[in-house]
């Protein structure tokens, strides 16, 4: 409880996105047509995932420095919520691709690289569930989380940009700069990202608080 203002900001941003995302003017482009509005909903999933994984990375390092089990709870729940948003991002991307690129999966470099980094994070969950000893589990999974984040950054930000890709911003395609993000779209796109990132952090923080309560109860009883 306590600090509600950012949750209210989250609600305002996301509701604004849902309303303005449909009603604001967008550039008229062939093939994309009205699906360009998906930019307000598909891309924020990835922004949110990156921020959540970044938080998990931060708390993993904090855990390794302090050995405080609370930091472990933060790292785990931020990673889990990040995985959830990555699945949403992947599904929305495939739905969008089906009707604009002609196929849900076209082995686009960015699709492949994000799929690989998703698998790396899935392995994190499996790794954790395979260990009983809490201290050991926390330590090994924190090390793995640092590795996973260090893999995700080049996989998503660097490699797809070095080869030709269907995604904008890769292989000589302009990114959020020219025709695909005009000044009108920016008015929705950035608030959308802010809103969805706050929503992701909100959900993750709820899960962290539940985990901390459970930990405390187990200590008491």
């Amino acid at each position: 409880m306590g600090k509600w203002w950012w949750k209210i900001a989250c609600v305002a941003f996301v509701l604004y996105t849902v309303i303005a995302g449909f009603l604001m003017p967008v550039p008229r482009l062939d093939i994309l047509n009205e699906t360009i509005r998906n930019l307000y909903f598909h891309v924020p999933m990835w922004f949110t995932m990156i921020v959540l994984f970044g938080c998990a990375f931060w708390y993993s390092i904090k855990f390794l420095r302090s050995g405080d089990m609370r930091h472990d709870a933060f790292a785990v729940q931020f990673t889990n919520t990040g995985i959830f948003f990555s699945i949403l991002g992947m599904l929305t991307g495939m739905e969008w691709a089906q009707y604009t690129w002609g196929a849900a999966w076209s082995n686009d470099p960015k699709q492949l690289c994000t799929a690989i980094s998703m698998l790396i994070y899935f392995a994190y969950s499996i790794l954790r569930s395979g260990m009983r000893d809490e201290e050991k589990r926390a330590k090994i999974s924190a090390v793995y989380n640092v590795f996973a984040f260090a893999m995700m950054v080049p996989l998503i930000f660097v490699l797809p940009r070095m080869v030709d890709s269907l995604h904008p911003g890769n292989g000589g395609n302009p990114a959020f700069a020219k025709y695909d993000l005009d000044s009108n779209m920016r008015l929705v796109f950035w608030p959308a990202n802010a809103g969805w990132i706050l929503l992701g952090v909100w959900i993750a923080s709820l899960k962290v608080r539940l985990a901390l309560i459970q930990n405390k109860r187990e200590e008491v009883f």
Partner: peptide
């Protein structure tokens, strides 16, 4: 747009109540 706004408003109300519930549990603990 109205339908989507309703769904999201409902989701947020749900999140707010969940948040409050967890807050109460924290106080209990």
């Amino acid at each position: 747009v109205v339908v989507l706004a309703t769904i999201f408003a409902g989701l947020f109300v749900y999140l707010f109540f969940l948040d409050r519930k967890i807050g109460k549990m924290e106080k209990e603990v």
